[in-house]
């Protein structure tokens, strides 16, 4: 596997490989999201308890799920960057972290919008909301550290170490926050523990989750391409690429 991956440790090869993936990812993300969100917002039946306001889950649940998954992805990239010193992996931290932070932010925003009709308040110290907020802080920490160094290589390595420290801590934080919440809030959230969801609701939800995955992958791919160009600006292949682009314009 590593022999296959190794050529892509070089910026140029990964840039072109990602460039080939990008149109497919973008197109399929758009298609799947259109189906999923259209289905969820228009065709899925309203909830007997929450009416139409439950429909926010078609955005809230996928973004919340992916915000965690993205952090794990970033931590894996960080491990690869530290152990095998692969530069593309270092750059992918800068590509992944903002996407993950935005997903976390969306999940918080939609959570608050959902909370208003459900709990009667924009913010409730609910376990899920609280741990998402902490996750957002963790993302911001990684981003801040990455960009704090004038030498990009150092920044990427420092951010990698922090991402790994974070990924060890996330389960602990998650568990503590849930325990803390049960301690202070008791039964207030149990009314949302929905035992079952009819297939007319969960099938579009799965489609949306899949669409969000594709969209996240597309964003990360594009951001990684930009990061490669930014970091390798002085390399001849980027210069040639830029010259080629200018010639095409004329």
């Amino acid at each position: 596997m590593w022999r296959w991956l190794h050529p892509y440790a070089k910026g140029e090869a990964s840039y072109h490989l990602l460039g080939r993936w990008l149109p497919w990812l973008t197109a399929s993300a758009l298609l799947v999201l259109l189906i999923g969100i259209g289905w969820g917002l228009v065709f899925a039946p309203p909830d007997y308890q929450q009416g139409d306001s439950y429909r926010i889950i078609f955005i809230h649940v996928p973004s919340a799920m992916l915000s965690m998954g993205t952090y794990t992805g970033m931590a894996i990239a960080a491990l690869v960057a530290l152990v095998w010193q692969i530069r593309t992996a270092e750059w992918s931290i800068a590509a992944i972290a903002p996407v993950g932070a935005v997903l976390t932010f969306i999940s918080l925003l939609t959570g608050a919008a959902w909370g208003k009709p459900m709990w009667g308040t924009w913010w409730e110290w609910d376990a899920r909301m609280t741990s998402q907020l902490i996750l957002l802080f963790l993302y911001l920490g990684v981003l801040a550290l990455y960009h704090a160094f004038s030498d990009n290589r150092t920044g990427a390595k420092a951010a990698s170490i922090l991402a790994l420290v974070g990924v060890v801590n996330i389960p602990i934080i998650h568990f503590s926050v849930y325990w803390w919440n049960s301690l202070h809030q008791g039964a207030t959230i149990t009314k949302f523990a929905k035992p079952s969801m009819p297939p007319e609701m969960y099938i579009p939800l799965f489609v949306c989750i899949f669409g969000f995955m594709l969209m996240t992958a597309a964003f990360i791919t594009q951001r990684l391409r930009h990061e490669i160009l930014r970091q390798e600006l002085h390399r001849p292949w980027v210069q040639q690429l830029l010259v080629g682009a200018k010639v095409k314009e004329q």
């Binding site: 902490i134 802080f137 963790l138 911001l140 920490g141 801040a144 550290l145 704090a148 160094f149 150092t154 420092a158 170490i161 922090l162 420290v165 974070g166 801590n169 602990i172 934080i173 568990f175 503590s176 926050v177």
Partner: peptide, 22 residues
């Protein structure tokens, strides 16, 4: 992590405080 930055103060709090929550 921040020792070579020379001005780590606020950044250090941002990195560490979330990890102190448990």
């Amino acid at each position: 992590l921040t020792v070579s930055l020379g001005r780590g103060g606020a950044l250090l709090s941002l990195l560490l405080l979330p990890l102190f929550i448990p």
